[in-house]
Design a protein around this nucleic acid. Structure first.
Lengths: 345, 345
DNA sequence: CTGAAAGCGCTTACAG
DNA sequence: CTGAAAGCGCTTACAG
């Protein structure tokens, strides 16, 4: 592969001049620039990305970091990533998905600086190792979701108002006359589980309803979403725990609930009402009955997270920002109004 | 940020030795290695990724390239990416999603080498600029899908046997007694559209059925999938074109068909049977009626593409491989058997 | 096993 | 506007 010296020689200029033609940071006489470009083309030359990076100390790459290792992206992540990519596209950044095993990172061989200008952290947890280990020297970061309390004021983040949303969903079900509302929450280590828990309990307490521990379940991180919904319902029903409505973490969990109901011969919404957080599937309307849910606007979360990050990369004096993205309830037909004899629309 | 010299000084060794401790390519006396590691830790030192890359000439990053610009990932891509990431994880690679606008790449400022060891190309098209422009000097590539004919023998690729699958799907519908089978194919510029077209026509011809051009439609790339399904059906029905079955590009297109049918007061499967390629949603079974489709095993496509690529990166004499991933028909309840009066299961 | 030096391929003051 | 030289922070023969 031709390098900058070859081009300089062929064009009859110094390599500084070749560099200037490409970086466009310093003007070069038009005629000279053309000669250089022509020489570059003839030699199939492009500036070496890593050499440039080494001297410029910036990569125009932003990183995306999942919790744990080898986690799979969900559909929520998909929308989020599409949002991130859109912003990347607009600003000329690339996106690097970090998949390195954490024990790799302990090995000297793989212990290196992170080849990005900044990073987006997904699905923060309470004692999030990724976040806790960060030092002042690390590149800028933006979290999607609420960071651990201890780091909250030090980090940029973009989040929905999950507490309020959970409260709204619960209130909605209360208004429909439900009293025993099962909450299939996400796994307890995720910070969002606390926010939703708070909203859920707040609504119940406000309505003067006692909290029943049996009706609030946290996901086991290793259980697939579908099974989580399916098994929880089957188990509770078998045990004779009664509930008339269930709020699920995602529409995939809700799907598990639908399947369990079908197997148990229970009707949705007549026997069980269902409401899902994270209504990120275009298919929810095709559920039978169409599934009510809250739309988190994942794409916007991603877009804004990337925007915040790029702003901080380009201006390290940019302020720490906490941005809230609107989420909205989408009421379809999976919840029954117990106050009337007809099914709630 | 501390560099290798600082560490060498603190540990009282040369920087070559520090390097050896980290790269582990040459043995270092245990006692010395520990001293170096301790010094590194004290200074919060990690080898600089870019500097290492520049001298080693490998990044341990593989690229993912979409066609066109700023395209969004679909659910098919999501599964595929999850497969790629799994392989990356196993081999210690990172994944870089290239989102740069192509006109950026024409600007000297953004014209650089690609910072990856190899690339995976998605959704190949007939005169795919990404592929056509490649030179011998570019890093190894693997295509997911069939490359343009001219490049076929020169490139590794992983693909389903789309022709056979399309033939099977069509035959299945023919066996059910359908004669007017509408095919909502993907956009014409994608190579896969040709394979499916071939399979579809082959089955029809074999059954002695004349091809009706009106019953074979190609997607307009800029039309959203849902609209494509919805509008095509509405338009054809309005125009009085008759068909009893429709094969769609994806389950999202099928969803559009479902909606159009609902609006037109047509029943699925009684009035229209539906069969979808790319059954990559966990939600298809929840359609009403459950949607029959072909599962492309996107995750495996991704896993194998990454495997092939990494093999070629690590051994540039590795052979050019064309790998076929099995796809399988999943028959649910969206197709009617015209030969009997009951609905086909 | 260890050190000193050259080299990877750029960019960037500095001097003209 | 242009050139010569230093520097970015590593790795890798080479010599011991």
């Amino acid at each position: 592969m031709a390098n900058i010296d070859d081009v300089a020689r062929l064009a009859g200029v110094s390599k500084g001049t070749v560099s200037n033609v490409f970086t466009q940071k310093r003007g070069v006489r038009k005629e000279v620039a053309e000669r250089v470009l022509k020489a570059a083309q003839a030699l199939n030359f492009k500036p070496n990305y890593w050499a440039r990076t080494l001297s410029m100390k910036q990569t125009s790459i932003i990183g995306l970091r999942m919790p744990g290792e080898n986690t799979k992206f969900s559909k929520f992540h998909l929308s989020l990533i599409n949002g991130v990519l859109q912003t990347c596209f607009e600003h000329g950044y690339r996106l690097l998905v970090n998949t390195l095993a954490t024990d790799y990172q302990e090995m000297p061989k793989y212990m290196t600086t992170n080849p990005v200008d900044g990073e987006i952290f997904l699905d923060p947890e309470h004692n999030d190792a990724r976040l806790m280990q960060r030092t002042e020297l690390d590149p800028p970061a933006v979290v999607v979701g609420r960071p651990p309390e201890a780091l909250r004021h030090r980090l940029c983040y973009v989040d929905n108002d999950n507490e309020t949303t959970a409260e709204q969903v619960t209130s909605y079900l209360l208004e429909l006359g439900h009293r025993d509302i099962l909450f299939l929450n996400t796994s307890q280590q995720r910070t969002v589980s606390v926010d939703r828990k708070r909203g859920y309990e707040k609504a119940l307490i406000q309505a003067g309803i006692a909290l029943k521990p049996k009706l609030h379940i946290f996901k086991n991180p290793s259980t697939p979403s579908l099974d989580y919904g399916f098994r929880s319902i089957r188990e509770l029903v078998t045990k004779g725990v009664s509930f008339s409505a269930v709020v699920t973490d995602t529409d995939k969990v809700a799907l598990g609930v639908y399947r369990a109901a079908a197997e148990l011969g229970l009707s949705i919404p007549n026997d069980i009402s269902v409401f899902a957080f994270s209504d990120d599937s275009v298919f929810s309307p095709e559920f039978h009955p169409p599934l009510s849910g809250v739309s988190l606007n994942a794409e916007e979360l991603g877009r804004e997270a990337a925007n915040l990050l790029i702003r901080r990369i380009q201006d390290n004096s940019a302020p720490i920002v906490h941005q809230t993205i609107l989420s909205n309830l989408v009421v379809r037909q999976s919840c029954r109004n117990l106050n009337s004899t007809i099914i709630h629309l």
